[in-house]
Design a protein around this nucleic acid. Structure first.
Length: 577
RNA sequence: GCUCCCGUAGCUCAGAUGGAUAGAGCGGCGGACUUCUAAUCCGUAGGUCGUAGGUUCGAUUCCUACCGGGGGCGCCA
């Protein structure tokens, strides 16, 4: 429990409960800009007790023992209690956190099996900024969930099945396998797909072949499956290249495409039928979950089996639920999928629960996100009006970062410049995506995301790099300052310490809502606090050796929190920039 | 038509389970570089929190209605 706000809340809860006559009563301790924290609970209690809030606040202060934690308390305004943490307490908490490999972040109360479904590009289609969001947000959540001790299963639900594969395979045949493989391996996925699509739309003979090919594919024809595998293989090799560039945890082992659920599809229908949930509607087998209506205000079905006997994405998503709950044993399933899928995923959740496949205690959550917009506030497009390819975007970001590095720090060796540019360029793209509330659309802007000021990853990375620079100059070993109890003489030292102790709260707040932007906001506040400290508190030329070591201890812990925090977001921390 | 999400400073965004004068960054204005990296810091101006009601001791936050923007609404995923 590194966060002093939580410590105060823990200390005061029994007091409030006692004053409330044994009814559990929240002291409502919050951060405050008038003190270190404010206790608001007296206001709510006052009415119940028939006393004024200030009287209740006084009762609390009389009954509670905050010595050792707070150096001052004061009743203010209508009945708030403002508390000031004691410097000794803050310093000792910091030492404790510095001795902790988890930097004060609490472990999860119970180790859960968490499935995170993210990225999900389509075979033979280009990865674009839409996949960027899913990939980056999902990856950050995976890292945080693992950090607090959960067992995480990554699943990349790639689109590797369905009717388009008829035309894609026929196009592969027309083109010749070698030529097709060449085209796909260089990442020219979209043009391959477009060519197939064009033929499909304009050529009846091709369309017929494509349809026949789908039947062969679904029937398990060996030669067809071989060609399908070729397509999937080339695409996933390309995806992997992008993942390596992006620096995410996803690997080939995490691939769980739609095709993987084929064997379960018939079972989905059977089990739903056995539960009596299946109804026939316009020739299709459907389930009507309660509360969903169509345009005509009639019940809206989830179609499990189409009129032609084929399955669709609802079927495979239901199969996913079965697989994740029954085979994997998931306690939590996170769908990091764009918000347009909200209703569909809700229907899948309702149906699978109604079918009794999902225990009450198992959480199914749609981690939804908005679009990436261009300057015109419309979905981001390239100059030529096409969707922006992800790998082109990453390349451009690294190039832009390289220009900046060259300008700012030309004396760095070229190889190191390139490495730092990569770390900054990739970090900037990720941070721009993670730092705003995921549910909203965000405006993509090169200038802003690569700026070295404001709420950007370069600014955070810079704070970290500065600390590394200080240690390089002093020659003091980082590990050597970890046991030092800092003296918090300057207000900037104190403010930095308070912020450092909130890392735990920041991580848990982030996980509570699956909102990485909360961790971003925290790290930005930390970087600002550090920059201010750096400006006002000389380290190498401190007044005394003791003060220097004290400040180095603050620097070390700041760098560790910054590096760890950025790592939880999937962002690297260069030591020089 | 039904339904979900969004609407905070000129711009881009934060505002935890409702709490005291609504916060940053950019841009504007004014300061600080023989310096531990100024890739920074300090100060200042700028908002009837979409509108109108309601609940509450207290509402940017909760409820209702409306306005504006976007998404979804049966065999594509």
């Amino acid at each position: 429990m590194a966060d002093p706000v939580l410590t105060v809340a823990e200390l005061l809860r029994p007091t409030f409960t006692q004053i409330a006559g044994g009814v559990d009563s929240d002291p409502v301790v919050r951060r405050s800009d008038r003190a270190d924290a404010q206790v608001n609970g007296s206001l709510a209690l006052a009415k119940v007790l028939g006393k004024t809030p200030r009287e209740v606040a006084q009762m609390v202060l009389d009954a509670a023992d905050l010595s050792g934690v707070c150096s001052a308390t004061e009743i203010a305004g209508p009945g708030f209690i403002n508390v000031t943490f004691s410097n000794e307490f803050l310093a000792s908490e910091l030492v404790a956190a510095a001795a902790d490999s988890r930097l004060g972040v609490r472990n999860a109360p119970a180790k859960l099996k968490v499935v995170v479904d993210y990225s999900a590009p389509n075979v033979a289609k280009e990865m674009h900024v839409g996949h960027l969001r899913s990939t980056v947000i999902g990856d950050a959540l995976v890292r945080m969930l693992e950090f607090v001790g959960h067992s995480v299963v990554r699943e990349n639900h790639i689109g590797d099945w369905g009717t388009p594969f008829g035309m894609l395979i026929e196009h592969l045949i027309d083109l010749g396998e070698t030529e097709a493989a060449n085209e796909l391996s260089v990442g020219d996925l979209d043009s391959f797909y477009r060519q197939a699509r064009t033929k499909f739309d304009s050529n009846d003979e091709f369309k017929e072949r494509a349809r026949a090919r789908v039947v062969l594919l679904q029937g398990g024809d060996e030669e067809t499956l071989r060609m399908w595998n070729l397509l999937v293989g080339e695409s996933t090799r390309y995806f992997d290249k992008v993942y390596r560039t992006l620096g995410v945890l996803l690997t080939a082992d995490d691939l769980m495409g739609e095709s993987a659920y084929n064997p379960l599809l018939a079972q989905v229908v059977d089990r739903l039928r056995a539960s009596g949930l299946i109804e026939m509607s316009d020739g299709a087998e459907v389930v009507f979950p309660e509360g969903f209506l169509n345009r005509e205000n009639e019940p809206l079905p989830l179609i499990i089996r189409k009129t032609d006997g084929g399955y669709n994405y609802a079927t495979s998503d239901l199969a996913c639920v079965i697989d994740r709950v029954e085979r994997i044993g998931a306690n939590v399933v996170l769908y990091v999928v764009g918000s347009p899928q909200a209703q569909h995923l809700e229907m899948v959740a309702v149906v699978s629960r109604k079918a009794g496949w999902v225990p009450e205690s198992t959480e199914l959550t749609h981690v939804a996100f908005g679009n990436v917009l261009g300057a015109d506030r419309k979905i981001l497009k390239s100059r030529s009006g096409e969707v922006v390819k992800l790998d082109a975007l990453l390349t451009e970001s690294v190039e832009r970062a390289a220009d900046a590095v060259k300008e700012k720090n030309a004396e760095l060796p070229a190889a190191q410049q390139a490495e730092v540019a990569r770390q900054i360029g990739i970090g900037a793209v990720k941070y721009a995506d993670l730092s705003t509330d995921r549910i909203k659309d965000y405006v993509f802007d090169w200038e802003r995301m690569l700026a070295f000021e404001g709420n950007t990853s370069p600014y955070l990375q810079y704070a970290h790099a500065r600390i590394c620079s200080i240690f390089r100059r002093t020659g003091v070993d980082r590990a050597a300052v970890r046991g030092i109890t800092p003296t918090l003489g300057h207000s900037a030292e104190r403010a930095l310490t308070v912020r450092l102790l909130q890392f735990d709260t920041a991580v848990w707040d982030t996980l509570d809502k699956y909102s990485p932007h909360r961790l971003c906001t925290y790290l930005y506040d930390l970087a600002s606090e550090f920059s201010s400290f750096y400006e006002h508190c000389p380290i190498l030329r401190a007044d005394s050796e003791e003060q220097k070591m004290s400040r180095l201890a603050l620097c070390d812990f700041t760098a560790r929190v910054m590096e760890r925090g950025l790592a939880l977001l999937g962002i690297e921390s260069p030591e020089q920039m």
